[in-house]
């Protein structure tokens, strides 16, 4: 576990990337982010016909001089977005090679860095059955060191309760923001919390980390399986048949998550820990339109 220590090397590769947040519709402080809403920014976007009530200072007089048409200049409005990153730090995350937790930490660091690079107000929290600690990073890029130290300190332990955690966290926010949840989703009824966040009109980015041994269990024989979180035991003869049944159950579970996220307009990303995190961010997330 000691080997799994975060450093800032790969963050350099992220320098030119930005978090692409879609469909932001809430009013906020002017930030660096381009809003789809046309308005008071400085960067020219488009023209439209003058309508009664439009400010005269936005009329393009050059166009009028040339074509005798009243056209109003439109500018992209820049908004300020708060980014909340929630990392699952329960015992179940401590599996895989690298562990889902280490993978999650690296993702949290990357998203935080991307967010700070874009001058977004960023807050990092990690949770188990409730929020364990919150680190406000503000808009200061240097706070990334604080986050790095925190991430290197925390360990995966305890039970998960995504629903309660997200509900409490979302209701405690004074201003709406983007919610990035990094978890293995091995929590019963995780959906409610996410539904609540969506109800609060928060865009939710759900990053599902999954390790290789969860997809195809490599153990077999007469086993006693112990739940890493609850300590509950289960005797089972694990053979080809049972593994197949398990894989069917897993497929069903994943399909359920996918359909759930589509239904509630939640951005969903599933990643196996065997995919290098650099590849995930630089290739898959860019292709997926999460960052640009």
């Amino acid at each position: 576990m000691e080997k799994e220590k975060l450093d800032l090397e790969f963050l350099e590769k992220l320098e030119k990337l930005r978090l692409a947040v879609k469909r932001l519709r809430f009013r906020s402080h002017l930030g660096e982010r381009k809003s789809p809403k046309m308005g008071r920014g400085t960067e020219f976007s488009d023209y439209r016909s003058y309508q009664v009530g439009d400010e005269l200072r936005y009329l393009d007089w050059n166009i009028y001089a040339r074509f005798e048409k009243f056209l109003v200049k439109l500018f992209e409005e820049e908004e300020d977005v708060e980014v909340h990153i929630l990392l699952d730090a329960s015992s179940s995350m401590d599996f895989g090679n690298p562990t889902k937790f280490f993978y999650g930490k690296k993702l949290a660091l990357a998203f935080s860095y991307l967010s700070l690079s874009s001058w977004e107000k960023t807050t990092f929290s990690y949770f188990q059955d409730k929020i364990k600690e919150t680190l406000p990073l503000e808009r200061k890029k240097e706070n990334i060191y604080r986050l790095l130290n925190l991430l290197n300190e925390i360990k995966a332990e305890g039970n998960t309760n995504i629903t309660e955690t997200v509900k409490k966290y979302a209701s405690s926010l004074k201003r709406k923001g983007i919610l990035i949840i990094i978890s293995d989703l091995l929590s019963s009824e995780f959906e409610e919390g996410i539904i609540y966040a969506r109800y609060k009109k928060m865009p939710v980015y759900l990053i599902h980390t999954i390790c290789e041994e969860e997809i195809s269990p490599f153990f077999s024989g007469n086993l006693t399986l112990i739940d890493s979180e609850t300590g509950e035991k289960m005797d089972i003869l694990l053979d080809e048949y049972m593994i197949q049944k398990y894989q069917k159950a897993l497929e069903k579970f994943l399909n359920h998550i996918e359909s759930f996220t589509m239904l509630y307009n939640v951005e969903y990303l599933r990643s196996i820990t065997s995919i290098p995190i650099e590849d995930l961010i630089l290739k898959y997330l860019r292709v997926g339109g999460w960052i640009k």
Binding site: L186, S188, C211, L225, D227
Partner: peptide, 10 residues
Amino acid sequence: RLRLKVPSLI
């Protein structure tokens, strides 16, 4: 029996 810790029994 071989005891094996798994992330979750769900």
